[in-house]
């Protein structure tokens, strides 16, 4: 049997990779995909800790996190479609007015 630490490490890696993607990519859709990647890491983490404590609270949280992800996807995609209609591009830099 394993000690569960490795699952936690994997979840940390997924989370941080999502962060890197969020910071570096310029395509709006890929940015939101990166946040979904961070969600995956967090779900894995809460379920790992739920397994560690031997209860199902973490799994319930994971379920609510899926709801949040769905909500986020719905709003984000609506927003992306709106922004795309305005500028005709998915580039996030197209919206940095204040940037010098």
């Amino acid at each position: 049997m394993n000690s569960l630490a490795e699952y936690s490490v994997i979840s940390a890696i997924l989370f941080a990779l999502g962060l890197v993607g969020f910071l570096t990519r310029r395509n709006l859709i890929v940015i939101f995909l990166s946040t979904e990647l961070m969600f995956q890491g967090i779900v894995l983490n809460v379920v790992t800790y739920a397994r560690l404590h031997g209860n199902t609270d973490g799994q319930a949280f994971g379920l609510f996190m899926l709801v949040i992800a769905a909500v986020e996807a719905g709003l984000a995609l609506g927003m992306i479609v709106l922004l795309y209609r305005r500028r005709g591009t998915l580039d996030a830099e197209a919206w940095s007015f204040m940037h010098g």
């Binding site: 630490a5 490795e6 936690s8 490490v9 979840s11 940390a12 890696i13 989370f15 941080a16 990779l17 962060l19 890197v20 910071l23 570096t24 990519r25 310029r26 395509n27 890929v30 983490n45 591009t89 998915l90 580039d91 996030a92 830099e93």
Partner: peptide, 27 residues
């Protein structure tokens, strides 16, 4: 805009330092 990244070096450093921090504690 898909073939260029914003600040890849800094972002990678920040992300992987965070990863190391979380993972070391998690392990």
């Amino acid at each position: 805009y898909d073939s260029r990244s914003r600040e890849p070096l800094l972002a990678v450093m920040a992300g992987f330092v965070l990863m190391a921090a979380i993972a070391t504690r998690s392990a």
